[in-house]
Design a protein around this nucleic acid. Structure first.
Lengths: 267, 267
DNA sequence: TGATGCGTTGCAAGCAGTGCAACAATCGTT
DNA sequence: AACGATTGTTGCACTGCTTGCAACGCATCA
């Protein structure tokens, strides 16, 4: 809506690709060098970009600090954390917490595996949305039309032979996940890593977050990991209860809640 | 320099305090609601703010993802990581990596302690700049005038009785750290936690990052922690060497490098 | 020493951002 | 149920901010 701000903000993802000099920024924006300079200056004053000794610009520290605050303000995260730690103590594997927001799913908390073999992932990193177990849960709960819209727009990279190949397959998977109330990723992202995930619901029954336990084949087989499902679901339900103001949810009966009418947004 | 962008960017730290509605944002900016609305819309389009179901705005997911990329692009981090992991394997304690940028010091990497008692800290979080061992190293290396300027502007919160009380004391501490080439924090931030830190230098000899080992009293005493100093310094030197293109730095003689003339910026 | 490439600055012109006022929508109250 | 109060939203006229240009400073390099 606002051209100037629009241009300024477009600089940031551009710099995320790596440091760039003034000319490059101006080119990519399609504006004169002088205007690019002024925009960069404003971003600099706010600490969003930093000018390194070779005069090139890169993303600044304030951005990182802000993002940190953004995550700490998420109340699901705060409530969930102790539960995640306890779960990790019980099973020893990596535990993740993720949320959905505007076509992206990202990890907002993580407790590292206590086994020496650890998987790579990082808080704040967008997850592989077409295969991750947590992503399936979060997308499965979107209102019908929004879900379709999102699913159609996605890319379906074949990380492994077991990755979700296309939108149709993904919709079917989501339908399944939706009724059964939990999800898995069996080698769909990394050949040798499996995950089990369960949804965390708010007071209105909507899925606001999802959590998962992940472990590589070399530590436990997929079957062994699946035996943890009840534990994972119990943990997720406990978090749900606390999050929605002590209304513990049963996970024994298939979850069913009326198709929500399309709301604008959800937390 | 650019009014519109300036206003738009000012919204973000504001939202970092917590969700706010349109009226509140407009008030804090000192502009009409309609202009605040348009700015928020632009921020929204870029995913920097998110509108929750109660219509209030909060920081968005793209911000978090961007910050993530920002950190992954820091090349010191990439080079240092394996060294940090190895150090952690050797001593078992929490290992941190931090950089300085425009009046802020922040952690950009961390390897968790292998002892059950863990300290709280988080990647991306600004560190207690007046007491942290890594902060001392990074500030001590700033050009004289810049260092004074920064030190004067700081607040000196008394986290504990051993916290740095004021600018004068801090300058003296920095002078000491500067000549000895390493730093400690003995209960200055948390009564029961001690740290030992060593600097990482670029090809020009300037301190570009700092690393530390931290442990609570209940695990090892301060004296015991100090015995790790040689190991920490050796690790830091190894990283320095690799970072500056294999020019291993000796840490045996007191580090001395000519007072740099005030440059605009440093990586 | 001159040429090329970069970042930077003052300026005038025009467009885009601003505040206003009126409207819509939601909510709580009587 | 009707009413005010509050909050978000839109169209519009006007002003002022943003823009591109051209000229300059300052490096590096031939």
């Amino acid at each position: 809506m606002s051209q100037t701000v629009d241009r300024a903000l477009s600089i940031l993802p551009l710099l995320a690709e790596g440091p760039a000099d003034l000319g490059r920024v101006a080119d990519r924006l399609g504006v004169h060098k002088s205007t690019a300079l002024r925009l960069l200056r404003t971003l600099h004053e706010h600490g969003f970009v930093y000018r390194q000794s070779d005069q090139r610009y890169r993303l600044g520290a304030r951005l990182i600090a802000l993002a940190q605050e953004a995550m700490e303000n998420l109340d699901v995260r705060e409530i969930a954390h102790p539960h995640l730690v306890r779960l990790n103590e019980q099973c020893g594997h990596t535990v993740h917490l993720a949320v959905y927001e505007e076509n992206e799913v990202l990890y907002i908390d993580k407790v590292e595996s206590r086994y020496p073999v650890r998987m790579y992932s990082r808080i704040g990193k967008p997850v592989a949305i077409t295969v991750a177990a947590v992503a399936k849960l979060l997308l499965a709960d979107l209102p019908e039309n929004e879900r379709r819209a999102v699913v159609e727009k996605l890319d379906y990279p074949m990380y492994t032979s077991r990755s979700t190949p296309n939108a149709d397959g993904f919709l079917k998977e989501l339908a399944k996940v939706r009724v059964q109330g939990w999800a898995t990723d069996l080698g769909g992202h990394e050949e040798s890593i499996n995950c089990v995930a369960a949804p965390i619901r708010g007071a209105d029954g909507r899925v606001t977050a999802a959590m998962s336990v992940s472990a590589p084949n070399v530590v436990v087989t997929a079957d062994e990991l699946l035996t943890l499902l009840p534990l994972v679901r119990r943990t997720a339900d406990a978090i749900s209860g606390e999050y929605s103001g002590r209304t513990p949810v049963r996970h024994t009966d298939p979850v069913h809640h009326p198709e929500h009418r399309p709301e604008k947004d959800t937390v």
